[in-house]
Each structure stands twice: as structure tokens, then as C-alpha cells.
Computed example of a mutant assay.
Amino acid sequence: MSQPPQSRSKKPFVILGLVLGSVALAGFVYYLINRGYETTDDAQIDGNIYQISPRVAGQVVQVLVADNQHVTKDQVLVKLDPRDAEAALAKAEADLAQAQAQVSVAQANQGQAAANVSVADAALLQAQQDDERYRAINQRAVSQQQRDSVTATIRAAKAKYDAAVQQQAGAEASVTAAQAQLTAANVEVKNANLQLSYTTITAPAAGRVAMRTVRDGDVEPAGAGLMAVVGDDVWVTANFKETQLPGIHPGEPATITVDAIPGITFKAHVDSIGAGTGAVFSLLPAQNATGNYVKVIQRVPVKLVFDDNRVAQYGLAPGLSVLPSITIQP
């Protein structure tokens, strides 16, 4: 007697249906949760990194900071040997004193020249008056010799007056030249003071010391890299896909989670949107005018600024990976 055929089990189909339903439900829930947000994992902390270099060559006499030390704005970082700059300043100050003395001498000569002009002018006037008196009396009472003497006296007085005027003009030119030398000497003193100030290297902003390579006794040329100062002011640069940009606007609130600080969420907001894609500003921008073109979704940097006072507490550093989430306004 043959047995009736056994019916196929429906259990696998039920399991498959439950799995597909669970996946669909999870996707729907994920959509509901994230439909009001834009996020990307292509984001990192950014900040100002100041490269510290000497503006003059010299030997390092003292390094006053350690690796990773926090410094304040204008805090002294490195001191160079100032003796050469001090000697140059002393010479410039001596030249300035000499220039000041030369101006005084030139002004005294100018005064003397002006006095000589006055004396010559008085002598010329006296000679002219004498001539007028001789002309006013009877000509028979004055000899030809007397008239010739008066005429010669006038000519001599006129010549002396002209010479005194020329001397005065030369004295005035000497004063102008001396004053120009004094101005140049003042400039040299200011420049020498400036060069001396360059032997003391200070922090351009508050931050932490990084990549310190300088040591006491090193002889450093101008422009050599000594260290870097990473500024305290940090922000987030998030590279969003261009298809995400329609919902992102400056001022929108955001939250930031940092991979290095799990469990902590920082408040932030959208500060600005980049003026171009990352590809445009790359070292070798893509050239799409030749060959086969494959469209690739571009990414645009979006700057997010922290609104959280805890940022300084956790010491966020440039380069750390973060996950931003921007709340999209309907």
C-alpha cells in the first residue's frame, strides 16, 4: 500500500518573509530617523597651524618651550644670539648722533650766512647813500677821485652782498642735506631695533607647540622651520556630496561626534559652504574636455563652527576624524 505524498514545509518561506520584512522595517525606520539630517563620514577637524621660522639668521641661545606645551599669544618661544644685532644698533645710534650734530653745525652756518647777508646789505646801503649825498651837492666841490672812490665802494659792497647771498643759499642747502642724513640715520636706528627684535621669536597666537625641531646651540638660517603652533581655534571641514547641498544652508544647527572621544556630542552650526569642489582645488584638477567622460559625484567642503564650550576641555586637534550631522530645515 503506497503512502500519500508529504506536503512541502512552508517554514523557509515564512523565515524569508520575516527577514525581508525586518529589513524593510529597519530601512523605513532609518529613513524616518535621518530624513531631517545630512551627514558624511568624510570630515575632520581643521585649525590654524602657524609655522615658526626666524626672520634673521643666528645661533639659538635658548628654547623656552617643550613639545605639546600650550602657549599664549606673544609668549617667547626661542631666543637667538643678539650680539650682532646689538652691535648694529649701537653703530646706528652713533651715526644718528653724528647726523644730529651735523644738522646743528649746518644750522649755525646758516645763521652766520644770514648775518653776513645783513652786514653786506647794510654796507651796500651805506655806499649808495654816500653816492646820493655826493650827487646832491655841487659837483665842483667833489673831485673826480672822490666820485670814483664812491663808485668803487658801491661795486665792492654789491659784490660782497651777492657773495653773502650765495653763501646763505649754500648754507640752506647744507641744512637740507644734513636733515636728510638725519632722517636716514633715524631709519637705520629703527631698522636696527627691528632686526634686534627678530632675535626674540614669539608665538603668533595661542595654541600648542608641535613638530619642534630646534635645539639650544643650533645655527639657523632665516626662514628655517623651528616648530609649529597649532592654534586653539578649531572647526570642522565636512566634505558633503553635491547632491546633499540643496538642504544645507549657513546657520543651520549641527552635531559633531569625534572618533577619538566616543560618547560625546558637540553642538555646532553651518558657518559657510565652499566656493568650489575639492577636485577644483586639487594639485592636478581633472580635465574632462578630452577622452571618455565618466560622471563622478563631487564633494564640496562645508565649514562647521563649534558652539560648545567643551571643545577647549577635550583639546580637539586638526586632522581628527569626526561625524557631523546637520539638521535640515523644512
Rank of each mutant, 00 (worst) to 15 (best):
Ala108Asn: 07
Pro253Val: 12
Trp235Asp: 02
Ala120Tyr: 04
Lys79Gly: 12
Val296Tyr: 03
Val219Lys: 08
Ile52Lys: 08
Ala171Ile: 13
Asp84Tyr: 05
Ala171Asn: 13
Gln6Leu: 14
Ile273Ala: 07
Val175Met: 14
Val258Asp: 05
Asn288Met: 08
Leu64Trp: 05
Asp74Gln: 15
Glu220Gly: 03
Leu125Met: 11
Thr199Ser: 04
Thr290Met: 09
Thr257Glu: 00
Thr72Gln: 10
Ala26Thr: 12
Leu16Tyr: 01
Ala122Ser: 14
Ala94Ser: 10
Ala164Gln: 04
Gly231Lys: 03
Leu32Gly: 13
Ala260Lys: 04
Gln195Val: 02
Tyr31Ala: 09
Leu316Asn: 01
Gly276His: 06
Leu125Arg: 09
Ala108Leu: 07
Gln110Leu: 11
Trp235Tyr: 06
Lys91Pro: 10
Glu188Cys: 07
Gln145Glu: 14
Ile137Cys: 06
Pro5Gly: 08
Gln244Gly: 14
Phe306Trp: 04
Pro262Tyr: 02
Ala43Glu: 00
Glu220Lys: 03
Gly111Met: 02
Arg55Phe: 04
Asp308Leu: 06
Pro221His: 11
Ala101Glu: 12
Met211Gly: 02
Val23Phe: 10
Asn68Arg: 12
Ala90Ser: 01
Ala177Ser: 08
Ser118Pro: 02
Pro250Met: 14
Asp46Trp: 04
Lys190Cys: 10
Val296Leu: 13
Val63Pro: 06
Glu188His: 09
Val236Gly: 07
Pro204Glu: 00
Leu245Asp: 05
Ile326Ser: 00
Ala173Lys: 12
Ala106Met: 00
Asp84Leu: 07
Asp233His: 15
Val270His: 00
Ala57Lys: 02
Ala254Tyr: 00
Val214Asn: 03
Ala228Leu: 08
Tyr314Pro: 08
Leu89Lys: 05
Phe306Asp: 00
Gln168Leu: 12
Ala114Arg: 15
Gln146Ile: 11
Ser53Lys: 14
Leu18Ile: 08
Leu20Met: 13
Val76Trp: 04
Gly17Leu: 07
Ala123Asp: 04
Ser22Asn: 09
Thr151Asn: 07
Ala279Val: 13
Thr200Cys: 11
Ala238Gly: 05
Thr40Cys: 10
Gly27Asn: 01
Ile264Asn: 08
Asp271Lys: 07
Arg212Ser: 05
Val103Pro: 04
Ala88Phe: 06
Phe266Trp: 09
Ala185Cys: 13
Gln51Ser: 00
Leu64Thr: 11
Asp84Ser: 09
Ser53Ile: 15
Val234Thr: 07
Asn34Gly: 11
Val76Ser: 06
Asp232Trp: 01
Asp148Tyr: 09
Thr151Ala: 13
Asp67Arg: 15
Thr243His: 13
Arg212His: 03
Ala87His: 07
Asp41Leu: 02
Val270Gln: 01
Val209Ala: 10
Gln313Asp: 11
Ser9Leu: 06
Gln75Tyr: 02
Pro250Asp: 12
Asn68Ser: 12
Thr202Met: 15
Val258Met: 06
Thr265Asn: 13
Leu182Glu: 13
Ala185Lys: 09
Gln126Met: 15
Ile264Ala: 10
Gly207Phe: 02
Asp84Pro: 03
Ala115Gln: 13
Lys10Arg: 10
Pro262Met: 02
Gln145Leu: 14
Ala279Arg: 11
Ala238Glu: 01
Gly47Asp: 08
Ser9Gln: 06
Thr200Trp: 06
Gln100Gly: 14
Val150Pro: 15
Ala122Asp: 06
Gln44Glu: 00
Leu77Cys: 12
Gly278Trp: 04
